[in-house]
Design a protein around this nucleic acid. Structure first.
Lengths: 336, 336
DNA sequence: CTGTTAGCGCGTTCAC
DNA sequence: GTGAACGCGCTAACAG
């Protein structure tokens, strides 16, 4: 390993001069600087990250913590975060909480070891104790949902997609196409995630002077298989609807597969619209109408936001909401 | 930030005793240990990672470096690596080379800063200079392809899927179903990746006493859009085949979409088989027959392998090959 | 069994 | 302009 002392020895200048030249901080003659940069190049000097971090408390790393790596919902976000942080010379450390509150707390606890400068955190379910655990890391933080905390919120930012609106858009699209019996295929209603989307769904129905029929609210688990079985059983038990709002693409696909098996043609017999607009929508036949959740944008903005806190030392809250966007394809049909 | 000195002060014991108690290394009385563990708990002590790394040269981090984050091929691998490393208390740092040799070298250069203990590296195209750059990081390394290097290979392991065999299996499956005009939809033939698969394809044809018809080898770029256009143009220019071996799922989907647009029914008019077996295969209609590339297994084994090198200081090469597995669905039909 | 001591590589005073 | 010296928090060798 090449250190500043090797450069010092090679150039005959002191270690502190080497540091000043390399970091461009403090006085240093042109000739000294040139000699040092040259020697550094020749020796292939790369600063030791741990030593740098120990001294300066800068790790040039951000943790991106998400509930589920295999969920396509996060791919564009990971990409957005990675690409943006890269421009700042920052790396991401991937945290993976497997949808488990216990694991979330464990990861947050480990962060007290100061191996990152900031945290981008995604969860399905924010609670005061989770927010408190986030606060106690002492790290600049961006969460990828809107969460209103009763106390001081200045230690975190929210960069998020308007979830109720996404479900509203999807439901509204069905209504506009003449549907009135619209099923809602979601996850566990106890989780914020599903609650918010159900809220948008309900709002759209109410605005159309329709009441929410609880028998049309189907609980699955955000997986393809779960949705497949839930929808299969819904129909087998006499469930009746002309359209389905699926809370993510995986469930939309699961629902499509169930329909195919049940001999229901899409969109002739049943219309399906999903939220997420991942590439899965382009694999199905017919291509699936979906609501883009702007995950790439969310990732990019979250990264910019965290870098702003880290570099500019911003210490007050700044929230950014993105608006979902309807992408019409061929899985919803107009009925009379 | 709580340090060992805080614990030292609180318990009245010296810092080194604190370290011995905490790390379970060296002598320490039961009572002292209990007092120290208790104090650490109360104060919420978490060791400072940078300090630990500086002193011990152990970062408890591994870089996972891949060409493309948005490619579903890697999702299961990321998951496998993450989950396995987690059991060792290791984190992953995500590196992203955007399919660019220049970027690969940059990332490798930065690794000389010793911010990870090991490297899991995936590339589309291994060259001697790339391998040399890997060697010069001085890090324990696993690459996710087989690459035979003319010189000393003891500094890296290969954990990989038998690529030629995957293409062979896919082609063989078509042959068994009576197809003889089988198109090959791949990437750039200059890349190792495509070359290997083309090799398996050719071998299967030759074993069936068929020669490789170059007009049936279609060059695309491993993306859905690329395959869509390439196949569209292939047909429009009079291309004739009864089956297609697509080098990944994205291209399989692109090919399916092109067929649909051209009014070709799958599998009636054209059979399609792809490599990868990602979830995309379950979204298409009909569900796509594919060859599982065991990416989850590759990720897990790569992680075990790198941990073995790190913890047990293994310093000789150990290569592990996985065999791909045919997953039959409904996109290939038997013809007479 | 315990405490003292000396760095790991770098950044930052503070004299010269 | 430059260099000597100290310390970030932790580990390990050594002396007690």
């Amino acid at each position: 390993m090449v250190t500043i002392y090797d450069i010092s020895k090679k150039t005959g200048l002191s270690a502190s001069t080497v540091v000043r030249a390399l970091n461009g901080t403090g006085y240093c003659s042109q000739s000294a600087k040139a000699a040092i940069l040259n020697a550094a190049q020749e020796l292939g000097y790369v600063p030791h990250q741990a030593a740098k971090a120990l001294k300066s408390n800068i790790t040039q790393k951000v943790m991106l913590c998400i509930p589920d790596i295999m969920n396509p919902y996060y791919f564009a976000m990971i990409q957005g975060v990675t690409q943006t942080l890269e421009r700042y010379g920052y790396n991401i450390i991937l945290g993976y909480t497997m949808h488990s509150p216990k694991k979330e707390l464990e990861v947050l606890e480990s962060l007290k070891g100061r191996y990152v400068d900031g945290l981008i955190f995604g969860s399905f379910d924010y609670t005061p104790s989770l927010i408190h655990a986030i606060q106690s890391t002492g790290l600049p933080t961006v969460i990828t949902s809107l969460y209103e905390y009763s106390q001081n919120q200045d230690f975190y930012d929210c960069v998020y997609i308007n979830q109720p609106r996404a479900a509203w858009i999807a439901t509204e699209h069905c209504l506009e196409n003449g549907h009135t019996r619209i099923a809602f295929l979601g996850g566990d209603v106890k989780e914020q995630n599903t609650r918010e989307r159900l809220e948008g769904y309900s709002k759209a129905l109410e605005e159309a002077s329709l009441s929410v029929d609880k028998s049309l609210v189907i609980n699955a688990d955000f997986t393809r298989e779960g949705a497949y079985h839930a929808f299969h059983s819904f129909i087998k038990h006499g469930g009746q609807c002309t359209a389905v709002v699926a809370c993510n693409d995986l469930m939309g696909v699961g629902c499509m597969n169930a329909c195919r098996e049940l001999g229901l043609d899409i969109p002739h017999d049943i219309s399906i619209i999903s939220l997420d607009n991942t590439d899965y929508c382009l694999c199905t036949n017919p291509a699936m109408t979906s609501v883009d959740m702007m995950q790439g944008q969310v990732g990019e903005e979250a990264a910019r936001c965290i870098m702003n806190r880290i570099l500019e030392k911003r210490n007050f809250q700044k929230n950014t909401a993105f608006s979902p966007m309807l992408i019409v394809r061929n899985s919803v049909r107009k009925i009379d």
